[in-house]
Amino acid sequence: MNEERYDYLSDEELNSLIEDTENNAMFTAPPDLMADVLGRLNIKDSTADSDKSDMTVAEFKPDNVKEFRSFCIKVIAAVAAAVVIIAVAPIVSPKLIPDSATDYSMEYAARDADIPTKEEVLGVEDVIPSKEEVLTRNGITEGIRDSHIISDFYSKRS
C-alpha cells in the first residue's frame, strides 16, 4: 500500500522537478555537508581496508625500539637463569631429582612378585576341557562343523 502511495518519480517528473527547483526553489545546503560526506567516505574506506586484512602495521616510534630492547634483555635473562638452574640443581641437592628409571623398574619388579603365574592359577586337576580338546582327543580333527558328527559325539558320550 505504501509503495502505491509513494511511487518513484518518472523521468519526466524528475526533469520537471529539477527544472522547477533550479528556477524557483534553490536553497543553500549546510556548509560542511561535503566535508561530512568526504569524512564518512574516508571512514568507509578505512573500514573496508581493515576488513580486507586483519594485519595491522605498528607505527615506527623510538619508544617502541626501547621497549623491544628491554623485552629482549628480559627474555635472555630468563633463559640464562633457566639454564643455570638446570645445571646447578643436581649438584646442590641430588636427592631432589630421583633416578626415575631405577625406581620405576624396582617398583614393577616388586609388584610382579605378588602376581600368580598362569600355571599356578590353572594348576588345578579338574579343569573342564574345551570342546576342541575333547574333539582332538577323540580323533576328530576335520569336519567339526558338520552337525551330524557333533550330534553323534554327544550321543556316544551320553
Binding site: 522537478l17 527547483t21 549546510p30 555537508l33 561535503m34 561530512d36
Partner: peptide, 27 residues
C-alpha cells in the same frame, strides 16, 4: 550539492532529513 539538497528538501519537507539524504546521495 545545493540542487540535490533542494530536491531532498522539497520531497521530504524536513531540513535535517534532507541533509542526511543529501549526504547519503553523494556517498
Amino acid at each position: 550539492r545545493n540542487l540535490v539538497f533542494s530536491v531532498c528538501l522539497r520531497l521530504t519537507g524536513d531540513y535535517f532529513t534532507a541533509e542526511d539524504i543529501t549526504q547519503e546521495t553523494f556517498i
